[in-house]
Simulated scan of single mutants.
Amino acid sequence: MESIKDKIDQLARILGKQPVKDPNLDYKSLRAVYEQQANNDVRQLQQQAKKQRIDNIHGRSDLNPKWTFSNLVEDSEDVIEAVSIAQSFIAAHDDPDWRQSGSHMMIFYGDYGRGKSHIAGAIAHELIDQYEISVLYRQLSSLLELRMSSFDFNAQDNVGEKFREINSELLNVDLLILDEVCVNESVLKKNTQSWLGNLLRQRLVNHKNCILITNHNLEGLEQALGPYCFESIKEYDTYRVKFSGPSRRKQLSQLEESASYTSTYQPNQVR
């Protein structure tokens, strides 16, 4: 007749484990050993599953993988201040009450090449890694082009269905980053103002956060978006971050020269 130890050893072999060789171990000790092994296996599976979820969120986000804080050069006061605000925004996600208290919007505004998109992307990467926040990065101009194409009922490339799928993502993703808002536009068309305003209002109701990136100043942004759309922005807890430092993009002359050598978190509401 098999002893309890024989049965446990047999079970261990079935599970691919090494039998416990110490004959002096009693049943409780053996049980503790295998429970520990089982717990270790469960933790490992949980870690693998979490990594897979995070990888999937990164894959769907459309973020530039180089937009991280480690790749950011804090060489001016505006960038240093923006990073401080960004870190506070990220840290606030530790508080469940803050996350459920309302909808939050960051507005990054300033001239080209100041690091607005980079810092927004760095925020997104951190939120994905730390909190598994779903993120979607889109340029508003490309969305509007796709939206206009969706009205072509003779199109053969299912553009209408594609836009409906993207529009659903725009509504439901935890953090929406809209870049190049009103780029080269002094005023959006009325139907575009209504669509964007409705999108922001629905996200507001569902406690979804946004980052808007624009080259306009706040007055110019209000004029470009129109009253209806801009009023929806005012409903959010808004954080305005101005970028006024030097451009971080190399000039053509610099690129040519280089080639010759180398083959506490309080909203500052929009008023």
Rank of each mutant, 00 (worst) to 15 (best):
L30W: 04
A38L: 14
L212W: 02
N24R: 12
Q10S: 12
T68D: 05
K7W: 09
R31A: 15
H216P: 06
I107G: 00
T262W: 11
M148Q: 12
F230N: 00
R99N: 08
R271Y: 11
N198L: 11
I166K: 02
I133V: 11
F108N: 01
L136I: 03
I166Y: 03
F243K: 02
A12F: 03
E2G: 06
L199T: 05
V135P: 00
S61Y: 04
S29T: 14
W195F: 08
A92M: 11
K208D: 05
N191T: 14
K189I: 06
Y27I: 15
D26N: 11
E235K: 14
S70A: 14
I54E: 05
I211A: 03
I54T: 07
E74A: 15
M106K: 03
K242P: 12
L11N: 13
N24H: 13
A92W: 05
Q193M: 00
T262D: 13
L252W: 14
I80D: 07
G115T: 04
L255Q: 15
S29M: 11
D78W: 06
L25C: 06
Y27C: 10
Y261Q: 11
A120Y: 01
E185P: 02
K7T: 09
S247V: 11
E74M: 11
Y27Q: 09
Q100A: 13
L212Y: 03
V183W: 05
N184P: 08
S149P: 04
H207N: 13
L72F: 14
S260E: 15
Q254E: 14
K250E: 15
Y239D: 05
D55C: 10
I213T: 04
D111I: 09
V270C: 07
S88K: 14
S194V: 11
